[in-house]
Every structure is written in C-alpha cells, then in structure tokens.
C-alpha cells in the first residue's frame, strides 16, 4: 500500500489527470443539463492535454526556446520536450472548436424544446409519441 502512495507521489500529475478525466466523464454520463455536459466534455479534453504536457516536463530544465545563436551547440537535455506542446496546441484548438459546435447545437435544441434538460426533452418526446 505504501509503495503505491510513494509511486503516486512521484506521479501526482498523472493522478490529477485521471481525477479530472473522471470528473468530466461523470458530468457527461450523469448530468442531465446539456451545458453541464458540454462543460464536462471540455474538462475531459483538458485532462488529456494535462497528461501530454506532464509527459514533456523535465525537472529543473528550461522552456524550449533555444539561444539565438546559429553556431552554439544546443544541449537538448537542458530543455523541456517541445513535441507534446505542439500536439496539445492542436488539441486545444480542437477542443474550442468542439465546444463552439456543441453550444450551437445546444442553442438549437433550446430553440426547439424550450429546455436544456435532457430528461425533460425525453419526457416530452415520449408523451408526443404516446399521443400520435
């Protein structure tokens, strides 16, 4: 048991990403309000970004901007790994794009049913089907 805790201590970032991911997933599964679900989705996506950024970190090293000198030899070990950062820039953009589309859909749904609660919408639909 203690081993697990020491291991977690050295990897607390990964634990945080898992907690956030689960918070997002919980909101997406359980919450009935659409905006809440959308916020949960964003939390879910940021947690993955946190994971990638954590993998790039090197203790005590500097940000990945090398000295402005074409002839100086660069010691790659002195800099934080830039590749995951690039990947995550893309992921952030994707997440804001998804957020925009999701909110647009949510507004369209609100216009159609007058509510943002998924439960209520399903109830409406069921009673409509019962009528026809």
């Amino acid at each position: 048991m203690e081993q697990i805790f020491t291991a977690m201590g050295a990897k607390y970032n990964y634990v945080a990403y898992i907690i956030l991911m689960m918070v997002g997933l919980y909101a997406m599964i359980v919450k009935s309000n659409l905006v809440k679900k959308i916020i949960g989705m964003s939390i879910f996506q940021t947690s993955i970004i946190l994971f990638y950024v954590s993998t790039a970190y090197k203790t005590g090293k500097t940000i990945p901007i090398v000295p402005y000198d074409a002839h100086a030899a660069v010691q790659a070990a002195d800099f934080i790994n830039p590749l995951p950062h690039v990947l995550m820039l893309t992921a952030i953009v994707v997440s804001v794009a998804t957020l925009g589309v999701a909110l647009a859909l949510a507004m369209k749904i609100y216009r159609q049913y007058g509510t943002l609660e998924e439960d209520d919408i399903h109830e409406d639909l069921r009673s409509e089907e019962g009528k026809s």
Binding site: V53, A56, Y57, K61, I80, H85, V86, M88, L89, I92
Partner: peptide, 8 residues
C-alpha cells in the same frame, strides 16, 4: 506555465 509549456 509552471511545467514550462509556455505556448500551451
């Protein structure tokens, strides 16, 4: 930013 991912 603390983790050095300034661009992100």
């Amino acid at each position: 930013a603390v983790m050095g991912a300034v661009d992100v």
